[in-house]
């Protein structure tokens, strides 16, 4: 075996070893490293029993209620299979609107998610106004493609 070929094999072995360890590490972390949980994952009991966590989903159209004279807003967060009512007092991101994806941080109090921070999670679609794209809403795992448009028109 020439020295060059030997170096090739050494490097190939190193790449395989590193690749395999990273592959198994990532497999183990597949269900973790989630920035947010969906309402379905919360229903499966994956949310912590105490303390804050992040809840992500789509703002159900028609569910947004603002309290006159206060900064409090109530809406329903859904992934199409499960829904959780959310209450939040504070400044919403500009992109907040019905059908939009949001990630809320807070905890569950008697079935209502009391949020202390709301971030917008928009979809990967970019286009001028007036065009319908199924990428307008972000993809929430477990939900139907097309966001809440598909949700609300579903029988």
């Amino acid at each position: 075996m020439t020295p060059r070929r030997q170096r090739m094999f050494m490097l190939a072995a190193m790449i395989v070893a590193v690749g395999a360890s990273v592959f198994f590490a990532l497999r183990a972390l597949h269900g973790e490293l989630l920035y947010y949980l969906t309402p379905t994952q919360v229903a499966e009991g994956r949310a912590p029993t105490s303390g804050d966590f992040r809840l992500g989903g789509l703002v159900l159209p028609g569910s947004v209620r603002r309290h006159p004279g206060s900064m409090t807003v109530r809406f329903v967060l859904t992934d199409g299979h499960h829904s959780i009512p959310v209450v939040f007092t504070g400044v919403l991101p500009d992109l907040f609107r019905p059908g939009q994806g949001v990630v809320a941080r807070g905890d569950l109090v008697k079935g209502t998610f009391v949020a202390n921070e709301i971030l917008a999670k928009h979809g990967p679609g970019y286009h001028p106004p007036g065009i319908h794209s199924r990428y307008n809403a972000p993809h929430i795992p477990g939900s139907l493609p097309g966001g809440t448009t598909a949700l609300v028109t579903r029988p």
């Binding site: 597949h30 490293l33 989630l34 920035y35 949980l37 990630v103 999670k121 990967p124």
Partner: peptide
């Protein structure tokens, strides 16, 4: 694609 992120998906 692998994890739930705040960042949107690929274009």
């Amino acid at each position: 694609d692998w994890w739930q992120t705040l960042h949107q998906g690929s274009i």
